[in-house]
Write a protein that binds this DNA or RNA. Structure first.
Length: 404
DNA sequence: TCTGGGGTCCTAGGACCC
DNA sequence: TCTGGGGTCCTAGGACCC
């Protein structure tokens, strides 16, 4: 018989807001913004005005993550809005990951503020899992000044569902023998991977709770959810065999970036200029990870909030800015509907770790040469900023096509 | 002062091949 | 005379996560 697994899920409560609160206190601010109606929100003037995180008090006013700050203010007049600080969040996230790594090397960084820990077979070291969970929770509070929820389960799904139960600053379990009492009473949309669309379809099928889903007719589910049906039904029974992905980041499957523009652009040159900057950014991420991309995509969101995209497969994988920009510019020319563009982005996918070397020795040498040059350029840019050197030539040469 | 940004995975349809 | 069909690759779009 296979041994039962034991998984912890650690989830920072209101991460962006908590981390900002701790930082403000550290800098001498008296007020703890976790205790007032407050949110972390994007820059409204830059048209990024949505709620990124909310305090428990703000939540009581009915404020929801991802809604507009405008809407949030309507719900709460004296709402305090603080800007995000992504560098700070990255630092806090690294720090937390380092701290948790002392308990097990089998740790998955699921997102900036969530980790899975595989504590299977560690009963000699930690005979009481629940006590360990409380220790972790309390240590984090004492050491770092913010609270977390810890969920325990026999797999990732259950651990994650458990950490979501009651917040903040709590430890919960959802072991396999607790599924019927703790999971089944929940609304079906509370289940991981059941979003708005799926929930709406399920409602039409008169499936409202996780228990309803657990007993739903498989034939009916399959008709509406195809291959997802089995996954959904398994979830309702707390079944999940997925392994921890300890090197998730190193094996990224895609790298992307996009910008909401300060106003809607309708000028090819202006839009391509943004694409060039974005090409540089995503290319550098690839180079840092020693990855190469085989597929390049350009994504658009127009003033009507309609999204569309075009992608193409390259003959040779690359992480060179000029190659990526060239592909992006070509895709732009093919795809852009000459509408007003609110957001434009680049996505690189089909990533590989090692470049498949080209036919001749000569090509190899050449590639090595350009890799070296690129490395030096990256170092200079790291030191003096991205705008210090820029291959303006690549912009000029590709721009000619659309100028006229 | 309306609606972010970075990801993963799946599906459907067309092209192409045998 | 009445239109196979399975497999693979590629692209566009969408659902879902934090």
């Amino acid at each position: 018989m296979e041994k039962e697994r034991l998984i912890f899920h650690v989830d920072v409560n209101n991460a962006f807001l908590s981390w900002t609160a701790v930082e403000l206190l550290r800098k001498g601010k008296r007020l703890d913004i976790r205790k007032i109606p407050s949110i972390i929100g994007g820059d409204e003037a830059a048209r990024r005005g949505i709620v990124l995180a909310k305090s428990p008090v703000a939540k009581k006013f009915g404020i929801k993550t991802a809604e507009t700050i405008y809407a949030a203010r309507k719900k709460c007049k004296n709402l305090q809005v603080f800007p995000p600080d992504h560098d700070l969040y990255k630092k806090r996230s690294d720090e937390l990951f380092q701290y948790l790594s002392q308990y097990t090397p089998k740790i998955e960084r699921y997102s900036i503020d969530e980790c899975f820990l595989d504590m299977t077979g560690m009963s000699l070291l930690y005979p009481d899992p629940l006590a360990l969970a409380y220790k972790i929770k309390d240590e984090i509070k004492e050491k770092f000044g913010y609270t977390v929820n810890v969920g325990l389960g026999n797999n990732k799904l259950c651990a994650k569902m458990a950490s979501d139960f009651e917040k903040p600053d709590r430890v919960h379990t959802l072991f396999i023998d607790e599924i019927q009492t703790k999971l089944w009473p929940l609304k079906v949309e509370d289940l991981l991977m059941i979003g708005k669309q799926s929930a709406a379809t399920l409602r039409q099928l008169k499936i409202y709770t996780v228990e309803d889903l657990a007993h739903a007719d498989m034939y009916l589910l399959t008709k509406y959810f195809k291959s997802q049906a089995k996954f959904m039904k398994d979830s309702a029974w707390g079944i999940d065999d997925s392994p921890l992905e300890t090197d998730r980041h190193a094996l990224a499957k895609c790298v992307s970036t996009s910008r909401t523009l300060p106003y809607d652009y309708r000028d090819a040159r202006q839009l391509k200029k943004v694409l060039l900057q974005e090409s540089e950014e995503v290319a550098r991420v690839l180079r840092r990870q020693h990855q190469y991309a085989k597929t390049v995509a350009v994504t658009f969101k127009n003033s009507q909030f309609v999204s569309y995209s075009h992608q193409m497969k390259l003959y040779n994988e690359t992480n060179v800015t000029a190659d990526i920009y060239k592909a992006a510019a070509e895709l732009f020319d093919r795809a852009w509907k000459e509408d007003d563009i609110r957001n434009i982005g680049i996505r690189l996918s089909d990533l590989v770790l090692v470049k498949e070397q080209q036919i001749s020795l000569f090509d190899k040498e050449k590639d090595h040469g350009s890799d070296k040059i690129q490395e030096v350029l990256d170092q200079i840019q790291d030191k003096y900023g991205v705008s210090s050197i820029f291959s303006a030539s690549s912009l000029e040469s590709t721009n000619k096509n659309t100028e006229s």
